[in-house]
Structures are given as structure tokens and as C-alpha cells.
């Protein structure tokens, strides 16, 4: 029989209410409180072998300590799934369920499941990392919320493929991957059906909800250019001939930095673009049209700018995911900050 370990707080662990919220974590054999219901629902495929009880305040105020102790309790236990809550609308309990689920998943790589009300702060904090089922806002829905977790746990334990958030009922984790429409409804039919609904003022559902749009504010102007260090960064794939860092021509995950201290311009034949998303002929015959080192050096010589930063930073923008681009941007920005660069000319293509 497969084994589940269940996490609950001091209240559902029948230790006490708010006055017992500093209760230090402990592990008990078998099911306690809502775990009895969970145990019944998991049967006969699985059982709740142990229960962890921890006071919400203890977890909130001594997070590292609480997690370390709980992970130590679990280290010698064999278990196949970890279930926390349901936490309903209880904020500290919801966050505690999220914290411990995330830690257990990270340490033991077992599936973790919890449940809480959608407005519980734990949802926004942990939605992307663990399976959270939307629950009621009070313990009155215990008999609705626990079965959701139990059914899903059994599905995972049986090795069945987990489908979309919408199908399974867990809260979307912002992971968008391919699937195939049941009944093989074509894109054309879905588009026309959606348009008919939209035109007729009926409710329709987009297949790609727009994320919150992340706008970057425009930087303040450089006060005195003649004292400024200016760096050149580009996503146009300008690299020394031969692409020494093997930056990918599309869907890049790497960036490179190249010393240009002794150069007045980027010579054709010594520098090239490895970007696969545009016609490279102009850039290869004059790489300065993407990385304007020639113009910037003459500004430096004329004293219009303080100096050109000694490295050019390059990556490739085509097909590169926004997440990779953000990571690479942050890494490059960190180096530029450490080098006291005052401003950056960022060229795309």
C-alpha cells in the first residue's frame, strides 16, 4: 500500500486554538483530525502513515527551524505523496502548507498537494510551484475539499498522466504546454466559434489569457555624458568570428562578453552575426551597424562621453523565451553595475 504523510496545524491537530499556535512541530503515526477522512478516501490504494502537526505561529516565526525539523522527521520515512491542509481562508496556515509542501518537494521529490481558498495569500506565493486545489473559505467545506485532494493524490499514485489545471481542478501553475483538443476540434472551428460568440455578445474563453503586462519604466537621462561610461549590449548576435562561446543562433540561453578595449570599430571578417532571425548580409559587412562601436569611440575621442566600457555583451534575440531573456538581462546588468557603467546602448535587430 502506498503511503501518504499529512501536514496540519495545531487547531486541526487538536492541540488547541490561537493560544497553542507556537506549538513546535511533531510527527505522529497514523491519521489525526481531517487526516481520518483523508485516510478513508485514499483507501485501499494508500493510507496516511504519519501526521505532522505544527503551530502556525511557530512556522511563521521560525520558518527555517520548523522546516528543518520536519524534513528531519521525514528523512527516514518512506512515503509516496505529501498532503497539507486544507487551510481554507486561514492565512498563516495556508502559507505554512505552501512552505512545507515546497520544501518537501524540493528535498524528497515526491508529489505534494494542498488546498486553500483562492484568496488565501498562500495561493499567490506558491501557486506556480505546487498543486493547490481551490477550497472553501471555512472548515464547513472540509468534506468537499479533502476529497478533491484525495482523488488527485490517487490519480498521481496510480501513475496516470496529469492533464491541464482546468481538467484536474488544481489552480493553474502558469505552465503552458501543448495538448490536443478532445474531439479533434480544429483551430479554424475554435476561432470561428469564438468569433461568433464574441460578435453575438456571448461569453467566450480565450485560449491564451493575457498575462499581467510588465512595463519597464524609461530610465532617467544621464546627467553628464562627458563623465559617463557607456556600455554596448546587443541581441543581434554580434560575436568574434567563429562564435567562441557557441551562443545559439535561435532560442538562445547563453550570452558572451568580448573585450573591445583596443578596438576603434568592429572589423568585418573579424566579427560576425550568428543571429538566424534576419538577413545577416548588412551586419556581416559592417558589424558596427548593430554594435555602434565606431560612433561611440569617436564620441569618446571627442570627449562627448567619458569612455566606452571595455566589454561588448552579445546574445541572440530570435526565438529566445522571455524568461531566458530576463535571466540573461539580469546577469548582464549585474556585471555592468559592478563595473560602474553609467548607461547602456541596447541594440536589437
Amino acid at each position: 500500500m502506498k503511503k501518504a504523510i499529512h501536514y496540519i496545524n495545531q487547531f486541526f491537530g487538536q492541540i488547541g486554538g490561537e493560544d497553542k499556535a507556537d506549538f513546535e512541530p511533531e510527527i505522529r503515526e497514523g491519521a489525526v483530525g481531517p487526516g481520518l477522512l483523508l485516510n478513508n478516501l485514499l483507501s485501499p490504494e494508500a493510507e496516511v502513515s504519519h501526521t505532522i502537526i505544527c503551530g502556525d505561529n511557530f512556522m511563521g516565526s521560525n520558518k527555517e527551524e520548523a522546516i528543518t525539523r520536519i524534513l528531519n522527521y521525514l528523512a527516514d520515512k518512506e512515503f509516496d505523496v505529501f498532503i497539507a491542509g486544507p487551510a481554507f481562508m486561514a492565512g498563516r496556515y495556508g502559507v505554512a502548507c505552501g512552505e512545507i509542501c515546497k520544501a518537501v518537494k524540493g528535498r524528497f521529490n515526491v508529489p505534494v498537494i494542498t488546498s486553500m481558498y483562492v484568496e488565501n495569500p498562500g495561493v499567490e506565493m506558491f501557486r506556480k510551484e505546487i498543486y493547490i486545489f481551490p477550497g472553501g473559505n471555512g472548515a464547513v467545506t472540509m468534506r468537499i475539499d479533502v476529497p478533491k485532494m484525495a482523488t488527485f493524490a490517487k490519480k498521481i499514485l496510480s501513475g496516470e498522466t496529469i492533464s491541464s489545471a482546468e481538467n484536474e481542478g488544481y489552480l493553474p501553475r502558469s505552465i503552458r504546454l501543448e495538448a490536443f483538443k478532445e474531439d479533434a476540434v480544429s483551430g479554424a472551428d475554435r476561432a470561428v466559434n469564438m468569433l461568433l460568440k464574441k460578435i453575438n455578445g456571448e461569453e467566450f474563453k480565450t485560449e491564451m489569457p493575457m498575462p499581467v503586462i510588465d512595463r519597464v519604466p524609461i530610465a532617467t537621462p544621464v546627467k553628464d555624458l562627458s563623465q559617463a561610461t557607456i556600455a554596448l549590449v546587443n541581441s543581434g548576435g554580434i560575436v568574434p568570428l567563429g562564435n567562441p562561446d557557441r551562443i545559439q543562433s535561435a532560442s538562445a540561453t547563453k550570452w558572451g562578453k568580448y573585450n573591445i578595449t583596443d578596438l576603434d570599430r568592429l572589423q568585418a571578417g573579424e566579427w560576425e552575426t550568428i543571429h538566424a532571425g534576419f538577413d545577416p548580409s548588412a551586419a556581416n559587412s559592417d558589424p558596427n551597424c548593430i554594435v555602434p562601436l565606431d560612433a561611440l569611440k569617436s564620441f569618446e575621442n571627442e570627449g562627448k562621453i567619458g569612455r566606452v566600457h571595455e566589454y561588448v555583451y552579445s546574445t541572440v534575440g530570435t526565438g529566445t523565451t522571455q524568461a531566458e531573456a530576463s535571466r540573461m538581462g539580469a546577469e548582464i546588468a549585474q556585471q555592468l553595475r559592478e563595473a560602474n557603467v553609467s548607461a547602456v546602448i541596447l541594440t536589437s535587430t
Binding site: S174, R176, T321, A323
Partner: peptide, 30 residues
């Protein structure tokens, strides 16, 4: 869309609240 191998990246390069009815046909980086 281009959500990356882990599916966690932003779907499109450009976004708009007005694009409220989209049919998605695949993830290029699946």
C-alpha cells in the same frame, strides 16, 4: 506561442489587453 521547454515563459513577444480572444495552436519550444 513560445513558452519555453518548461512552459513558464511569456506566450508572445508583444501583449495587449485587447487581444482577449486568441486560439493557440502550439508551443514552438515544446
Amino acid at each position: 506561442e513560445c513558452t519555453g521547454r518548461d512552459g513558464k515563459s511569456q506566450s508572445l513577444v508583444d501583449l495587449s489587453e485587447k487581444a482577449d480572444a486568441i486560439v493557440s495552436t502550439g508551443n514552438v519550444s515544446q
